[in-house]
Design a binder for these strands. Structure first.
Lengths: 328, 328
DNA sequence: ATTTTTTTTGCAAACGTTTGCGATTATGTT
DNA sequence: AACATAATCGCAAACGTTTGCAAAAAAAAT
């Protein structure tokens, strides 16, 4: 069976297509009697309007595009989950594309969004994305692009970010206030602006106690694991480990378990995190919250305000708070 | 600027719309010269075909719908990630909807899929879904529905599942082969068919050593944590813990850390898992792999074969394998 | 009974494509 | 030069809606 259309209903009822259309949207022009008839037949025939036809006709797809480096990732997941919730509430659907950390696929995903005439795009660029002109060009077609989390460093565009600087400062100050003597700070990919921001702020906070801070870079859980294991095996080992991200935290924690160290007695640990991982461990890890969920809400509200007319570039920042566990 | 259309291109070039259309798809009827001209203008004008118009005209949306209880979940994530990959390769897009464990929202998501005239639906029903008729009815409109993971228990439909029974047996046999004396088995929601399957098979495997198995049910990480803590605090405590899922594993591990027990010396642990969590701990946890990623691939291939004509109901099963860590 | 007003409905164009078929133009053959 | 053939191209309908406007029908007013 092919799906029901307005035409089919109109033919059965001997009405015009337009009357059926109006009846179904409760247009005041249509009499109650015909409305009744139409609605009844529509439900028995399981009528569902063809979204493509509507979008074509109204030039409004009611769809947002979301482009992320990877779907199976805590942070992006919770971001997507919140954007999806908000979108559904407002009658929007989501097309979700993952770029697999590949700039070429990313570009193709962008193209897909355009072909679908999405009303807006949320994008977190991959670390390897060099050219963001294709994204910026979309504004010429009046389709807003909200960059989130990993955002272009220099270009003027709509950005929604965590307060990375603030978050790093909070973490650093927490460590300093506990009078720690030797801190291992593990950061991510040195080339990413997010790493730079966090690192700079973190180091600045340690400016008076520069000598107690040792910084390392890890590009994966495994590297974080190796670094932590190695550093914590030194005779003069760190008394505190700071992890820039959940991934790094996971690696570090594995090393700590491996070395049978007790937290926070043998070593203290503090992280920046989406909130899920820290609660996995005992004692629970103290962390500066970098909530993908909240960031999603912020990004969505920015999208809505953009669509409502506030089209000038804005850089929004999500405040971070310290969530205390018992790890430091 | 409004987006470029075939019409616009045709007007600039003094050609007909159909010629432009054909030129862009490299139709043999069109001369090389005009193809050149058309393609050149199209690229400078940044032409992207309107997917809605194409779908309307061709009656083929090239879109699959994915409906899951929740997006931010390891298992569903990896499922979605793999379906997304495969889909992109074959020129399909994905509309991803989450039901938030709410049957009503789920139904609405189904409606959205229909309105978008998706070519097929992957759905994992919520635990509270009672009536799956609306799903089954879609086959009347020739749109295939592939149920995965949490599938309807009785109805004839296309199902793609993990080999839950086999997986539970593997886990049980692994425990038995190690000559364990007291086993705590923690299972999930008793009402879900997936729990029943796993539990039945697990208990059957212990049929000769019934007395060494103690079963508990946990509906969350926190419950799993509490149960494990309580059981492992007994004087005659279990020497082995089996966890039916990642979520339960996470709770159990937290309790084990809290009690400062050493794995596998003080207590052994084995789980069913997607594979991410077990590698988070040291020593790594031995688990029976229940891969969302592989399940996604299986589901996708089923979808493709359905679309290719094999429309009879099938129940596919993904073999499970034991991944050895050092936890038992 | 006629006109006016109000209520109810239908016509037709438009959204941007694709595609069968016919028309035009160019090329080749005698 | 006349014709046949092949290479290019355009017309127009269709996909399923929405919507301004006009038309028809019913109700109200004279």
């Amino acid at each position: 069976m092919t799906s029901t259309t307005l035409k089919k209903i109109s033919e059965v009822l001997g009405l015009s297509i337009s009357t059926v259309s109006r009846a179904l949207k409760n247009h005041p022009d249509i009499s109650e009697k015909t409305k009744q008839k139409v609605i009844e037949l529509a439900t028995t025939l399981d009528y569902e309007p063809n979204a493509n036809a509507i979008h074509l006709r109204t030039k409004n797809s009611k769809v947002f595009g979301v482009i992320v480096p990877s779907i199976s990732n805590f942070f992006y997941d919770s971001f997507i989950a919140s954007v999806e919730e908000e979108s559904r509430k407002m009658g929007y659907s989501l097309i979700i594309l993952q770029s697999s950390d590949n700039a070429e696929i990313e570009l193709n995903n962008l193209k897909l969004c355009r072909q679908n005439r999405v009303n807006g795009i949320f994008v977190c660029i991959t670390p390897s994305t060099q050219n963001i002109q294709p994204f910026l060009r979309l504004s010429e077609f009046n389709i807003p692009v909200i960059f989130f989390d990993k955002v272009p460093e220099f270009e003027a565009c709509n950005k929604v970010c965590l307060a990375d600087t603030q978050a790093a400062i909070i973490a650093a100050n927490t460590i300093l206030s506990k009078n720690k003597k030797k801190v291992l700070g593990i950061f991510g990919n040195k080339n990413m602006s997010i790493t730079k921001k966090r690192l700079t702020a973190f180091e600045d906070a340690f400016t008076l106690k520069k000598n107690i801070l040792h910084v390392e870079y890890a590009h994966s859980k495994e590297e974080a694991h190796a670094i932590t294991k190695q550093q914590l095996s030194l005779k003069h080992k760190p008394d505190t480990v700071f992890c820039m991200s959940d991934e790094i935290l996971a690696g570090a924690m594995k090393a700590i378990q491996e070395l049978h160290l007790t937290i926070p007695k043998d070593v203290a640990i503090i992280s920046m995190s989406n909130g899920f991982f820290p609660k996995l461990y005992y004692p629970e890890i103290t962390y500066v919250e970098t909530s993908g969920y909240k960031l999603g809400q912020l990004a969505f509200s920015r999208m809505i305000s953009y669509l409502a007319g506030s089209t000038f570039m804005q850089e929004l920042t999500l405040d971070c708070i310290l969530i205390e566990g018992q790890s430091i």
